[in-house]
């Protein structure tokens, strides 16, 4: 049996957790889910292959509590003895499984793209934000792993989805770290992660003033502005706009990289864009090799032309 930790947040099941359920179903016919509260999600988890949905019920688990979640899962592991415990390759999924692994002193393989159970257990996992893969064997009694976000699509595979409620034993230390407050979005408008169009600038923009060009084009295309790390570390733009390994990973319909060289750490965040356009003075810049369309030129000359023609086309 494989146990899958499913995360949910204010009324919605986490999409990557469903991808973890799908991978689990490829490894074992018996897949069970564990969720903190949220019995109402059992039918949906059944659709994605969970035969039983173990629902942890505890007053301390009304909102996300990482160590308490892990403690509840460790309790279930002791009673159910699964061959593997999987979770989502997200901030929360990786955090919970790391706690589980620390509590049980077993290895934890984060961000796996492939898993083969047996002895030995084999995994392929993402390094460097997915730009490099590592093929490893894991020496363990129970495999703890998370599934790299969006590496495999969630596929329905209906099972019973029967609810089994349980009350975990939690200590005050398990509940020492909980969410005390939520701060809303600073500004309205499309967020980087959700935007269909991202117009992004790098060092080649020359300074913060030039980003008004990117704002204009993004505005005309219904998109938002992104940037490289050189730009955030110079203080030209806020970190919320940084695309890449240590910024946000996005997969918009259109990504326009202006004055960005295309370092692997930047590409880790934008290489899944459906269409990629690069504007760069250097024809040999790495971004130009992976772009669908490339213009070899100065952003200050090219962008005003593109903006003028786009504005004319929209009639704005």
């Amino acid at each position: 049996m494989i146990l899958v930790h499913v995360d949910h947040d204010r009324g919605a099941v986490d999409a990557v957790s469903l991808q973890a359920l799908t991978l689990a179903r490829c490894l074992d016919s018996d897949v069970q889910a564990v969720i903190m509260g949220g019995a109402e999600f059992a039918p949906e988890l059944g659709e994605y292959g969970a035969s039983i949905v173990h629902v942890a019920e505890h007053p301390g688990l009304t909102d996300y509590a990482p160590q308490a979640t892990a403690r509840a899962i460790v309790g279930l592991i002791n009673s159910l003895a699964p061959t593997a415990v999987l979770g989502a390759g997200t901030a929360r999924g990786n955090e919970v499984l790391a706690h589980v692994a620390a509590m049980t002193d077993l290895p934890f393989a984060a961000d796996c793209t492939e898993i083969t159970l047996g002895s030995p257990v084999r995994v392929t996992r993402a390094r460097w934000g997915g730009n490099l893969l590592e093929e490893s064997t894991v020496i363990t009694t129970t495999l703890f792993a998370t599934v790299f976000a969006h590496a495999i699509p969630a596929v329905q595979s209906p099972a019973a989805g029967a609810v089994s409620a349980f009350t975990p034993e939690l200590s005050p230390a398990d509940l020492a770290v909980v969410i005390i407050e939520r701060a809303g979005a600073a500004s309205a408008g499309v967020t980087l992660a959700e935007a269909k169009v991202v117009v992004s600038g790098g060092r080649g923009m020359g300074g913060p003033e030039s980003f008004s060009l990117l704002e204009d084009l993004a505005g005309l295309l219904g998109g938002t502005v992104g940037c490289s790390r050189v730009v955030t570390s110079a203080g030209w733009r806020p970190h919320a706009e940084q695309v890449g390994q240590t910024g946000t990973k996005i997969a918009p319909d259109l990504y326009i990289a202006c004055g960005i060289s295309g370092a692997t750490q930047h590409l880790a965040g934008c290489k899944n864009s459906k269409t990629l356009i690069a504007i760069n003075t250097d024809p040999d810049a790495p971004i130009m090799q992976i772009a669908d369309y490339a213009i070899v030129g100065d952003v200050h000359a090219v962008l005003p032309q593109v903006i003028a023609l786009t504005r004319a086309a929209t009639g704005a």
């Binding site: 290895p107 995994v123 893969l133 590592e134 093929e135 490893s136 064997t137 894991v138 020496i139």
Partner: peptide, 13 residues
């Protein structure tokens, strides 16, 4: 190590 690293692979673009 209990996660024993084998080969590294650069995913094909």
């Amino acid at each position: 190590p209990r996660i024993v690293k084998g080969r590294l692979v650069v995913p094909a673009a």
